[in-house]
């Protein structure tokens, strides 16, 4: 299954888009992935690119089996971002779906 497709995802899956933007350096992916796994957040896909000179990583994750809520996860990721010098946002997938798809 292509994880960027919604088809086949059960109703229990809660997809959240995590975006990481900053200057490239060693350990960004490891740091973010580690934090996610510590809170039992499943990474469905990662795409990483350089957009307008910035390291940009976009992850689609499933938080349905995580003991923390989306709002708690946002705070955890924000402090991780401050620690490794990048900006991390976690947003409900619907905001992107609504804007770009009918």
């Amino acid at each position: 299954m292509n994880p960027w497709e919604n088809e086949g995802s059960g109703p229990e899956i809660q997809r959240v888009i995590v975006t990481v933007v900053g200057w490239d350096r060693v350990g960004i992916i490891a740091g973010v992935a580690n934090t996610l796994s510590m809170h039992n957040v499943n990474i469905l896909d990662i795409r990483q690119t350089i957009l307008q000179n910035y390291f940009t990583m976009i992850m689609i994750v499933d938080i349905s089996r995580s003991p923390v809520s989306l709002q708690e996860l946002q705070l955890i990721l924000r402090s991780k971002g401050e620690e490794i010098g990048v900006e991390i946002h976690a947003q409900h997938e619907d905001i992107f779906k609504y804007m770009h798809r009918i």
Binding site: N2, W4, N6, I17, V21, R47, L51, I58, F96, M99
Partner: peptide, 15 residues
């Protein structure tokens, strides 16, 4: 309906 989002679309929203 299948949903697919490109990284460019995601970054456009964030911008």
């Amino acid at each position: 309906m299948p949903i697919s989002l490109t990284p460019e679309e995601i970054m456009e929203t964030i911008r």
